[in-house]
């Protein structure tokens, strides 16, 4: 059988919120390592990849590798039934037709049990090649969310330009142009609230704000976000989640005419 008990159940709610608007259905792959998911949005423009390591659960039991084919909207609805301080357990058999979510209140006075039908999802797995990035930008996740929100008022896409002076986000539309420049706060300092840039080569790429805004749904999961950019390659947007794993998003650049 498979059983994974997450004491900080709110994390599962937050992971769900971070993917449900992007991905319609996906396989949650459960192995001894943990729970992972990789899925593209329906237009194949962006990809989400997440890992919840087994040591983040207490206990974690996976007798046989299984894939739980899940409709995200249905799971998100069930996750909304869990309170923020609930302990969440995910449970299924070795050849499952259903998955069970159990929500326990902290004092165990209330136990909710939701069983959900699984789907047979034929998903293709993509291998993500190791990339030498031109620039790796770390910044407060809330700052990146704010930038995406503000520039969405100006245009549909954002140009990210990174050089020795810092990083600039700019958008243009019918009403005009918006530019937001961030300087490094300190050299190689990745403390919360800091902007840090590892620069190999100056780089400038344009991305759809619609998708970056979807990615910022992961903001409640982490204090820091890392943007890894490289000329003519997809950007990797990573939120590392303390003690359990990560969620990463990839988005292909817009092709300059």
């Amino acid at each position: 059988m498979f059983e994974a008990r997450l004491v900080q159940g709110s994390l599962m709610k937050k992971f769900m919120e971070a993917i449900k608007d992007l991905v319609k259905e996906a396989n949650w792959d459960c192995t001894g390592t943990g729970i992972s998911l990789q899925a593209m949005d329906t237009s194949h423009v962006s990809l989400v990849s997440l890992l919840l390591r087994s040591d983040g659960f207490d206990p974690y039991r996976c007798d046989r590798n299984i894939s739980l084919g899940i409709n995200m909207e249905s799971m998100a609805k069930i996750m909304k039934c869990a309170s923020n301080d609930d302990v969440i357990t995910i449970r299924s058999e070795d050849h499952p037709d259903n998955v069970t979510f159990v929500f326990e209140s902290p004092n165990q006075e209330k136990v909710c049990d939701y069983e959900m039908k699984l789907m047979d999802i034929d998903s293709e797995h993509l291998g993500i090649p190791d990339t030498e990035y031109d620039a790796i930008i770390s910044m407060p996740a809330s700052e990146f969310q704010r930038i995406c929100r503000d520039l969405s008022n100006i245009g549909d896409s954002v140009k990210i330009t990174c050089n020795k002076d810092g990083v600039q986000f700019s958008a243009q539309g019918d009403t005009g142009i918006g530019k937001i420049a961030l300087k490094q706060n300190a050299v190689i300092d990745k403390e919360d609230g800091q902007v840090s840039i590892e620069l190999n080569d100056p780089v400038s790429l344009t991305f759809a704000l619609r998708y970056l805004t979807f990615f910022t749904k992961a903001t409640p999961l982490a204090s820091t976000v890392t943007l890894s950019v490289s000329a003519k390659n997809p950007v990797a947007v990573e939120y590392r989640v303390d003690d359990i794993g990560y969620i990463r998003y990839y988005l292909a650049p817009k092709i300059e005419e």
């Binding site: 423009v45 293709e124 390659n233 988005l251 817009k254």
Partner: peptide, 14 residues
């Protein structure tokens, strides 16, 4: 506006 590229061509199908 520039065209949006699909991801498939960057990543390898396993």
């Amino acid at each position: 506006l520039p065209e949006q590229d699909r991801l498939d061509q960057y990543f390898i199908k396993c």
